[in-house]
Structures are given as structure tokens and as C-alpha cells.
């Protein structure tokens, strides 16, 4: 028997990998359970998927409401065309696939069949940004950039299980189409520690701080909060503003926080092109603030395959990299 101990080898994250930290509080399949709850209250809600029910937590809904679940096969154009058709008959579809397929493969169907007639179809995109180590075929690093140009579409980038649980009934209740950047599996539960409620279209100040202001969305709000704690040990006082709705963007709340002398940093699980940073930047320029904004985002390149912790470290999304960047900015 060998007694040699080696450092655990980080493996390429599977599609179902969680980005939760070891020991972190998580909630299982928050989207699936929230959809079941919403469907119990509203008989118009139906679920569809394109051969990714198990990987988008739609299987929870399928089990609870088999007659209201529709398997469309690995056919994303059909998935979203059919979701439009169902909405035309008065139903409220939630249609799930991976973000890459929704954004890259079925764009025309989302745009013309769902967004143009402004139908209440809710697009559920798994593996947003860098949440898989499978490489560019699965990493939807530019999904928000693609979708922000689509009129009528509401874009939601939730932080954790709390956001998802609270967002689902609001997505169902809101007119017009929505796109949810799904976090699935064992999803971190973070925002229950704060005096916070998800409100569609609203940004929320999670914590105040005198030196730096973070504006973040998605899982990067979790990292922003962790980084803020870490920076406190360096005597840097950081505020965190969470902007789960990317479009329509709550410019008023964000600009009020940016219009100070604090270092402004955006944090997003998305390419630096066309996502949260540019949303904030355009709001700042439009308002004539003349304020410098530092982006923390994925680079404008196709990313490597590998283990998620490795990749988050490599591309600057880890807490350590955030802390280092902020300290460097503060000189």
C-alpha cells in the first residue's frame, strides 16, 4: 500500500460542476423547485427543454408536472419556435437549454418569434459565462453581448439561489420575454445574509463602503462580497452594488453610487465586450459623469478548457485576483 500523498489534482470541470467553494452553503436545484412552486400557483406555466432537462434543473418540473413538460429534443430552433407558439395560445413557457445554444444557435427564433411579438417566453440558459471547463463550445462568455441588442428582452444575471428563487415568479409575471443566466445544481446561497430582495429591474446596494464601489452581477456578486471582506483586512472599505437585471438596467441606482470619489469597479462573469461593464460605461457617459470605471471581466478571447478554479484564477474572476487588482488600482 502506497503511503505517498500527492496534492489533489484539479480535474476539468464537468458540465454539472458547481462553482461553489468547498463547505459553502448551497441549495439544490433552486430553479427547478422555484418553477414547480410558480406552476402550482399559475396553471399557464409550462416547461420545455432541448435534451438538457437534467442539466438545467428542468427535470424537477418535469417530474412534478409531466403533462405540462415538453421534451423538444436536441433541436433548439424548434424549442424556441414552439415556445413562441405555446405563448401565442396563452401559456407561459419556460424553455431551457445551454446559453451557448440559446444565444448562438437559436437567435433568429428568439428574436423574431418571441421578442418581436413581445411574448411571455422565459429563456433559461445554463452554463452562462465561465461556469464550465469544456471550452468555447460550452462557455457562453458573450451571451449578454449577443442578447443586449435584442429589443423587448429582459436579461437577468442572478447571483445565487436566493436570486433565482425570487426571480422565477417575477419572470413569469412580467410581460414580454426574459433571459435568465441559470445557475444550476448545488447553487451557493449567499444573499440570505443580507437585507435583500430580488426585484426585477432593480439594482440593490448590498453593503456600503468608503473607498471602493463594486458594481456586479451574477456569480461575481458572490465574489465581490468575498473580495470586499478580504479587502477589509487591508483596511480598504468596499461597497457592493448588485445589478441582477442587466436589461433594462437600473442606471439611477448605479449612477448614484458611482457619482463619488470612490474607485469604481465592475465585476461580471462575461467577456469585457458588451456586458455589464459596457452597460455601466454607457450609462456613465450618457450621464456625463466623466468617471473612470475599472472592468473585472473575462478577456475578449476564446477561453481555455480546464478546471473551473484554475480558469477563474487564470482569467481574473477569483477572489485573490480581484483583491490584487483593487490593491494595485489603489496604489
Amino acid at each position: 500500500m502506497s503511503t505517498v500523498t500527492t496534492k489533489p489534482k484539479l480535474k476539468t470541470s464537468a458540465m454539472i460542476a458547481s462553482f461553489a467553494d468547498p463547505g459553502q452553503k448551497t441549495t439544490s436545484a433552486p430553479f427547478g423547485h422555484a418553477l414547480v412552486k410558480a406552476a402550482e400557483a399559475d396553471s399557464r406555466i409550462v416547461g420545455l427543454t432541448a435534451d438538457l432537462g437534467k442539466y438545467t434543473d428542468m427535470h424537477i418540473f418535469a417530474k412534478a408536472f409531466p403533462e405540462r413538460f415538453f421534451q423538444m429534443g436536441m433541436a433548439e430552433q424548434l424549442l424556441f419556435g414552439a415556445a413562441a407558439g405555446m405563448a401565442e395560445t396563452g401559456l407561459i413557457p419556460f424553455a431551457s437549454t445551454y446559453s451557448v445554444f440559446a444565444a448562438r444557435r437559436a437567435y433568429d427564433f428568439l428574436c423574431l418569434d418571441i421578442a418581436e411579438p413581445n411574448l411571455n417566453v422565459n429563456i433559461i440558459g445554463g452554463l452562462p459565462g465561465l461556469t464550465t471547463g469544456y471550452g468555447p463550445s460550452h462557455q457562453a462568455t458573450e451571451d449578454m453581448a449577443i442578447f443586449r441588442g435584442m429589443p423587448n428582452l429582459t436579461i437577468v444575471d442572478p447571483c445565487d439561489s436566493v436570486d433565482i428563487e425570487q426571480a422565477v415568479p417575477q419572470l413569469a409575471a412580467s410581460d414580454g420575454p426574459t433571459y435568465l443566466r441559470l445557475l444550476r445544481g448545488n447553487v451557493p446561497t449567499v444573499l440570505d445574509e443580507y437585507d435583500y430582495k430580488f426585484e426585477l429591474g432593480k439594482a440593490k446596494v448590498l453593503r456600503g463602503g468608503n473607498d471602493v464601489v463594486f458594481v456586479s452581477s451574477g456569480l461575481m456578486t458572490m465574489r465581490a462580497l468575498q473580495a470586499a471582506d478580504a479587502l477589509a483586512k487591508h483596511n480598504v472599505d468596499v461597497a457592493v452594488v448588485h445589478t441582477p437585471t442587466i436589461k433594462p438596467f437600473d442606471s439611477a441606482t448605479v449612477l448614484a453610487e458611482l457619482n463619488t470619489d470612490r474607485l469604481a469597479v465592475t465585476l461580471e462573469n462575461h467577456t469585457v465586450v458588451g456586458g455589464l461593464f459596457e452597460t455601466v460605461a454607457s450609462a456613465v457617459v450618457t450621464a456625463g459623469l466623466g468617471k473612470r470605471v475599472v472592468p473585472i471581466a473575462l478577456p475578449d478571447q476564446f477561453l481555455d478548457a480546464g478546471a473551473l478554479p484554475t480558469l477563474h484564477e487564470r482569467y481574473g474572476l477569483s477572489v485573490d485576483r480581484i483583491v490584487a487588482k483593487v490593491l494595485a488600482e489603489l496604489g
Partner: peptide, 12 residues
Amino acid sequence: HGLTIAVGMALG
């Protein structure tokens, strides 16, 4: 597009 929407309408 039409037949994909038709499928959804027929299902709905």
C-alpha cells in the same frame, strides 16, 4: 420558422 411555431401552437 412557421412549422416550429405551429408545433408549439398545436401543443398548447
